[in-house]
Nucleic acid binder design. Structure first.
Length: 425
DNA sequence: TCTGGGGTCCTAGGACCC
DNA sequence: TCTGGGGTCCTAGGACCC
């Protein structure tokens, strides 16, 4: 029996590539996509990477380079990227029996059953060409006998131009050669903390880690790292689930456009996060049993910062925005402290249940009013999803200017707003 | 002046039970 | 003064990912 085989398909500089699909004048030029509030670099074109600009760097520190190299800045346009990502994964699902959408710009394919019938390198090149032709997005493909090695292969496909975007890492000797020149911190699952600890143990390269006893790694770290070691050894330890587990939590949080110093503004912001979180929850057809709120001042304050979190179980699991707002408001008031300049807040929903399995409360509310709640929320989602406008909750509208986010260099919503669809002339 | 947003998984430790 | 042992469940926090 042949060993398992997985491919990782990864879009190059995803956000920048999306912008370029609709604005080809950006091709070949240095482009940065900045996060919400236009403050932080979240995606870089290869030209920008070559200059040495790091992921996550704040824009205000980059002004000299931006001037010198004529770097073009775009605000992040998540509805455009989401729509492009959906097309990307639709195409992939036609090209492999099992697909795991790992993130907005990456997917694993299970090619195990195709090995007997196809030349996998050729198949991988076909995947690359098809995605490019049908979406305009450039991708790299790496494949190997485990997910961690596939990840390593796709990284090599990006790094070495000679690979022309496809790397076959199924051969064990080749695996060892690549791992020998890969620093341990570049392995999927090894972050800065673990890398430091591994180096202190004398493990510098991926190959050295692969040659370490997995049970030793387990005792010093955790089962997660043990799995990583076994993956590097070529055993397929992670499998791709055909039905991915349901989400376990929903977080909505954002940095503010300007500092928030008034409780009313904070309540408005938190309310609007609850509204979005509840929409996501209903789209998953779930109800939540627990809600948390967190708020914080700048992480970069020398002293006098404040950050806190509070959570509460809901009286009854719900997806009704109104009930969630009541709970979030109570928690926000509890956390609020005058005299601070808040930079960020968020809400988190957890403890999800299936609404159909939830027992109705015998005492307070009858089944009829629960039916009404659901009908109201359905109507709300339907109107808000129609593109005709949005119904909002009263508290959201108070002074949005004071906390709403800045996106001054936003590209049009080419794929999700009729008025923004590009014209071919 | 200005430092992203949204997730996952695991572990330790506390509360509680018999 | 001395303070069991074993189990479950929950939560907070840490580490990682893109």
């Amino acid at each position: 029996m042949r060993p398992a085989c997985f491919a990782l398909v990864d879009v190059d500089n995803f956000y920048v590539s999306c912008e370029r699909v609709f604005d080809p004048s950006l091709n070949g030029r240095p482009v940065i996509v900045v996060g919400n509030n236009d403050q932080c670099c979240v995606a870089r074109s290869s030209e920008v990477k070559a200059i040495g600009i790091k992921m996550g760097e704040p824009l205000f520190k980059l002004q000299p380079q931006i001037q010198r190299h004529g770097i073009i800045i775009r605000s992040s346009n998540y509805s455009l990227y989401g729509a492009m990502s959906a097309r990307f994964s639709t195409i992939l699902s036609a090209l492999a029996p099992t697909v795991l959408e790992y993130s907005i710009d990456e997917a694993f394919l299970d090619l195990t059953s195709l090995q007997a019938h196809y030349d996998l390198s050729e198949h991988a090149r076909g995947v690359k060409q098809t995605v490019l032709r049908w979406t305009g997005l450039p991708v790299c493909v790496g494949f190997s006998t485990s997910l961690t090695l596939a990840k390593l292969a796709s990284r090599a496909a990006k790094k070495y131009p000679a690979a022309r975007g496809v790397v076959d890492l199924t051969d064990p000797a080749r695996q060892r050669r690549l791992m020998a020149i890969t620093p341990v911190g570049d392995i999927w699952g090894v972050g800065p903390r673990i890398a430091r600890k591994l180096r202190a143990m004398g493990i510098e390269s991926a190959l050295q880690l692969a040659d370490t006893d997995p049970s030793l790694i387990r005792s010093r770290f955790s089962v997660v790292m043990e799995r990583t070691v076994r993956d590097l050894q070529g055993e397929a330890h992670h499998r791709i689930e055909t039905s991915p587990p349901a989400k376990g939590q929903i977080i909505c949080s954002k940095s503010f456009g300007t500092r928030v110093t008034e409780l009313a503004d904070m309540l408005a912001a938190v309310t609007s996060y609850v509204v979005r979180a509840a929409e996501k929850l209903r789209s998953e057809k779930r109800v939540a049993g627990r809600l948390s709120v967190f708020l914080m001042t700048s992480r970069f304050l020398e002293h006098g910062g404040y950050s806190n979190e509070a959570s509460s179980s809901l009286e009854r699991p719900t997806a009704d925005t109104r009930n969630l707002i009541v709970c979030a408001t109570r928690l926000t008031r509890k956390l609020w402290k005058d005299g601070h300049r808040f930079t960020k807040a968020g809400v988190m929903l957890t403890d999800f249940r299936d609404p159909l399995c939830e027992q109705h409360d015998l005492f307070s509310t009858d089944a009829r009013s629960q039916g009404r709640s659901q009908a109201l929320m359905d109507t709300l989602d339907c109107i808000n999803g129609s593109g005709l406008g949005r119904i909002q909750f009263a508290r959201q509208r108070i002074s949005e200017d004071s906390w709403g986010m800045k996106r001054e260099r936003l590209s049009p919503n080419y794929l999700s707003r009729w008025s923004d669809i590009p014209e071919a002339k």
